[in-house]
């Protein structure tokens, strides 16, 4: 490891995902700064799992996430709004079935 003096000032941002329990998927909980991925996991443990929140942590460099542009919202999402046939709303759900 060779670090330069500027490293500390520019710790990269990591996005932290925590799986609350087995069977559920990882959920974004926030972000933090760390010098590398290993430190990010340690920091995530201290910042986001103090009250027993999880069973697994993912730390992802924020720079590695490709995000959609809010300006593209209309073209990305609105076309789905008037296509009701894509939603399973025409079925009758039996009264005893709870989790649909």
């Amino acid at each position: 490891m060779n670090h330069t003096a500027s490293d500390r000032k520019d710790w990269p941002l990591f996005e932290i995902f925590i799986r609350p329990k087995n069977g559920l998927s990882h959920k974004h909980v926030g972000s933090l700064h760390a010098a590398d991925a290993k430190m990010a996991l340690g920091n995530a443990r201290d910042v986001y799992t103090r009250r027993g929140e999880g069973v697994s942590i993912w730390a992802v460099p924020a720079a590695a996430i490709a995000a959609s542009d809010p300006a593209d919202k209309a073209s990305l999402f609105e076309p789905a709004d008037d296509k009701v046939y894509r939603h399973p709303t025409f079925y009758e759900i039996p009264a005893d079935v709870k989790n649909i």
Partner: peptide, 12 residues
């Protein structure tokens, strides 16, 4: 502490 995250770690 020198960093916010490390501040939390040390106090933990």
């Amino acid at each position: 502490a020198p960093e916010l995250e490390e501040d939390i770690a040390l106090t933990n």
